[in-house]
Nucleic acid binder design. Structure first.
Lengths: 340, 340
DNA sequence: CTGTTAGCGCCTTCAT
DNA sequence: ATGAAGGCGCTAACAG
């Protein structure tokens, strides 16, 4: 059978308390000789601590829960990777719960909370969900939220600076490339990221004194197919814009498809801008102009934040932190420069 | 404080054993009225079972560990998604451990095993690792291995049929498109998938009576850059092949880059074949001809297998199962048809 | 059908 | 610096 601290205690002629201390405690509250002897015996017995027992005794799990929306594409790989890496360095395990047909975000969260399965949760909230606030309010496990809206101000939040990203690239398109007829394909209407990107877009236009045309703002769904559809609609308008700003790269890719099949050349006949800077964009021809989002940074930062919370669980004084991850502009060849 | 079964027992005037049975047991070993009363009180007290205690008592975790190699790209998203979905339906949580600078596969596995953190493990083994067999032999937790080699025959294995995939597409290229000058860019030499794909490639050539040229088999590393490099080398050979079979789509994409910068047109001057059928391939122009791998199927199948094992842990009689997931051919426009 | 009684393996005050 | 002893919350024989 597996050795326990009890076996070690026996063989070493000490109490289990001493063994526990020798094996676990940080402070040297055990005489070095005793400790050495215990360590040796523990080795010899091939002792492996039983984390289940430890968990119960300390009522802690050493696990972090990561709640993801329906995952697809390398965006989420990067998040998971970032979170896993930092969690591991901090001595935490990572329990992942993605959304799928059988479970939504709230259910995932509830699963973690109810059974006190994790010490803390990282929660990606792409869009509003009715019961979310209620659930969050009911359970007192530390939570870091990844999203870009101010509905959750009392929690720790990590967000992409969507507004600034959209603003910058649209502003650049106006000021440096002399464009003014710029349309946009948004994400799903409830999506927070999309909303902020749209705000950045409209703000940039406004600041440049360009009137916003509602018929040039079309709702998409963040998928390639959706981008294709939306683009087709834009390209069949009587008054066409010169530029399409897609709220993510997937839809931008869809625009490439649509433009190709409708016989529009990029960037001569229509210019395309994306958002995210996923690998795919580098393979579009001409290369996609887009907004760079440091995805794995998001995962890393939120995990660091969460772990800091977990380490100072008693210290309630720390104010909720709101960290914005800034974005950058990637200049491809999908937007032409107008002379004038 | 949180309510425990003790509180419920008190309030209901029964023992904790009865409460435990009423709340947990499948068989109706509790009188319906008692059970109802207990359920009601438990509700009223807002009782939440403490999974930590349950775990210790049953010495089981209801968790499945997923050990991944260094993750990158949507391939792994699909795996995680597939595993998570099935694990959830089976009542298991998913603990993910990817490899990174601070931890390799063996270490991840050891972490799971040593601390009995999970009931079972799904293990992706892309290439040989010295201590792996040793570790596997030392711990008796059920394991399902995802890879395509016969070194682990005594374990449950799920594998992509790499050989058949490569064979089919090369055979098709020879028989239907009349090619015979076909080169290959392999993956890293130790990689199992790559090795089997190479075998499929050579077998198809052999069966068609085509001599294999070693100078037309170049080692890559499964990355885009690696494909680019390897392709450049091939395109600068004195005797050039007509077709390049890249062992994965990433490298195929790299070939597109290299061909473009060296002025080779696809498929007129050089034909490209990939493997994996990732999203990226659909956006290459001309469209990539490649082998379809049902990635999320792999995750799902291995999880089903593992859960079956966990449910029949006593029944040792079940032989190790080896499941092959078959692949399909995706015909794009990156390979021309020769007349003759 | 239900209660009693030990654990599961470790941690942690409180004494000594 | 160490030991004794009582949890942590739940499960699982074994009786009744």
């Amino acid at each position: 059978m597996k050795a326990t601290i009890y076996d070690i205690a026996n063989k070493a002629g000490v109490s289990t308390a001493t063994v526990s201390r020798a094996l676990g405690d940080k402070q040297e509250t055990v005489r070095p000789e005793t400790r050495d002897r215990i360590l040796q015996i523990s080795n010899q017995l091939n002792y492996r601590p039983n984390s289940l027992a430890k968990n119960l005794a300390k009522s802690t799990t050493s696990a972090i829960g990561l709640v993801l929306p329906e995952i697809q594409g390398d965006f989420y790989t990067e998040i998971v990777k970032g979170v896993d890496e930092i969690a591991f360095s901090g001595g935490y395990h990572l329990i992942v719960a993605s959304s799928h047909s059988r479970r939504n975000i709230v259910e995932s969260l509830l699963g973690f909370m109810r059974e006190s399965l994790v010490d803390g949760v990282i929660l990606m909230i792409p869009s509003m969900n009715g019961h979310l606030e209620e659930v969050l309010a009911n359970y007192k496990i530390p939570v870091v939220i990844i999203n870009d809206i101010h509905a959750f101000d009392k929690y720790d939040i990590v967000s992409i600076d969507n507004f600034q990203g959209a603003y910058s690239i649209i502003n650049y398109t106006i000021k440096s490339l002399n464009h003014s007829k710029i349309s946009m394909i948004t994400g799903p209407s409830g999506n927070y990221d999309s909303q902020m990107r749209k705000k950045g877009y409209t703000a940039a236009l406004k600041d440049a004194g360009i009137t916003i045309r509602k018929d040039w703002i079309i709702e998409g769904d963040f998928t390639i197919k959706g981008g294709e559809l939306a683009c087709s609609r834009i390209l069949s308008l009587k008054e066409k814009p010169d530029v399409i700003f897609a709220a993510n790269d997937n839809m931008a890719a869809g625009c490439y498809n649509a433009s190709e099949s409708l016989g529009f050349k990029i960037p001569e006949d229509i210019c395309i801008i994306g958002f995210d800077h996923i690998e795919l964009g580098n393979f579009l021809r001409p290369k996609l102009t887009t907004v760079h989002v440091p995805v794995s940074e998001i995962g890393k930062t939120s995990t660091k934040l969460l772990i800091k919370r977990l380490r100072n669980k008693d210290d309630k004084s720390i104010e909720p932190q709101h960290i914005k991850i800034s974005t950058g502009i990637i200049i491809g060849d999908s937007v032409s420069k107008l002379n004038n």
